[in-house]
């Protein structure tokens, strides 16, 4: 299974982008091969509106079945849920993608059952 992380620049060492819809890249981690790759999300980061939905579409396109991010608004949540993508949110800021992955693998990140912010997140 592939897990996506919202990130600032696409490398596993980059910081976790807290805003799902505005992430410039998704870092992808394959739990079987244990390899990293990335997927550009510029189209969503630049979107005039509906960034969360565009990002959700990109997640589906990337083949990831789970997303780890900082915050997720109501529309992105609905869109991801519709595509059966699992959502994990880490509130703590400043983590790298690798650190977030470790946290996830050690079972410290719970699956989100609701959006945690309103839309229009800066």
């Amino acid at each position: 299974m592939k897990i996506a992380f919202s990130s600032m620049d696409g490398s596993p060492d980059s910081a976790l982008e807290m805003r799902f819809g505005r992430a410039k890249y998704f870092v992808l981690y394959d739990t079987e091969s244990r390899e990293f790759s990335n997927y550009e999300n510029q189209s969503s980061a630049d979107a005039a509106q509906g960034a969360g939905i565009q990002a959700a579409r990109n997640i589906v396109e990337s083949g990831a079945s789970a997303i780890i991010s900082g915050h997720c608004g109501p529309k992105a949540f609905k869109a991801l849920s519709a595509a059966a993508v699992k959502i994990f949110l880490i509130e703590e800021g400043g983590l790298s993608v690798k650190a977030a992955l470790e946290k996830y693998l050690s079972g410290q990140v719970a699956e989100a059952s609701n959006p945690d912010v309103e839309g229009h997140w800066i």
Binding site: Q49, G50, A51, R57, K75, K78, A82, A83
Partner: peptide, 24 residues
Amino acid sequence: CASLCRFNAIMHSKGKKPLFFTEL
């Protein structure tokens, strides 16, 4: 429909029916 919508108001994932976000 989802690929045509310039306002990102439609979510579509392969094999599924589209989902409309009327607020957008």
